[in-house]
Lab assay of single mutants.
Amino acid sequence: SEEKKKAKERLERLGASSELARELLDRANGNAEKAERLLRKLL
């Protein structure tokens, strides 16, 4: 979806690899905010 694509791009801008961004979104069930929080914990 367009929303998921935007979320993935945002995670990548924050420093996630394409693969990591995809994994985070999967774990967050597509929830962009939750995926971002997970990423911030990792960085």
Rank of each mutant, 00 (worst) to 15 (best):
S1D: 14
S1T: 12
S1A: 13
S1Y: 13
E2R: 09
E2S: 11
E2I: 11
E2W: 09
E3M: 10
E3A: 13
E3S: 11
E3Y: 13
E3L: 11
K4E: 14
K4N: 14
K4Q: 14
K4T: 13
K4A: 14
K4R: 15
K4L: 15
K4S: 13
K5G: 08
K5C: 12
K5M: 11
K5Y: 12
K5S: 11
K6G: 09
K6T: 10
K6Q: 12
A7L: 10
A7G: 07
A7Y: 09
K8N: 07
K8F: 15
K8Y: 15
K8I: 15
K8D: 03
E9I: 09
R10P: 02
R10N: 06
R10Q: 06
R10G: 04
R10L: 08
L11S: 01
E12V: 13
E12R: 11
R13W: 12
R13Y: 09
R13C: 13
R13P: 01
L14V: 03
L14Y: 04
L14H: 03
L14D: 01
G15S: 02
G15M: 03
G15E: 01
A16S: 02
A16L: 06
A16W: 03
S17I: 03
S17R: 03
S17Q: 03
S18D: 08
S18N: 06
S18E: 11
E19A: 12
E19N: 08
L20C: 12
L20P: 00
L20T: 03
L20F: 06
L20A: 02
L20Y: 03
A21F: 05
R22I: 14
R22V: 13
E23I: 15
E23P: 00
E23Y: 15
E23V: 14
E23K: 13
E23R: 14
L24P: 00
L24F: 03
L25D: 00
L25P: 00
D26T: 09
D26A: 14
R27P: 00
R27V: 08
R27H: 07
R27S: 06
A28Q: 02
A28P: 00
A28D: 00
A28Y: 11
A28H: 04
A28G: 02
N29F: 09
N29T: 03
N29P: 01
N29A: 08
N29C: 13
N29E: 10
G30D: 05
G30S: 03
G30I: 02
G30V: 02
G30N: 07
N31P: 00
N31A: 04
N31V: 06
N31I: 05
N31E: 05
A32R: 06
A32H: 05
A32N: 03
A32K: 04
A32W: 12
A32Y: 15
E33N: 09
E33D: 12
K34F: 14
K34G: 07
K34V: 15
A35R: 01
A35F: 04
A35T: 01
A35G: 01
A35I: 03
A35V: 02
E36P: 00
E36R: 07
E36V: 13
E36S: 05
E36T: 06
R37A: 14
R37W: 13
R37Q: 14
R37N: 09
R37T: 08
L38A: 08
L39P: 00
L39S: 00
L39R: 02
L39G: 00
R40G: 04
R40C: 14
R40S: 06
K41G: 07
L42C: 10
L42A: 05
L42T: 05
L42G: 02
L42Y: 11
L42D: 01
L42Q: 04
L42M: 12
L42H: 05
L43T: 04
L43E: 02
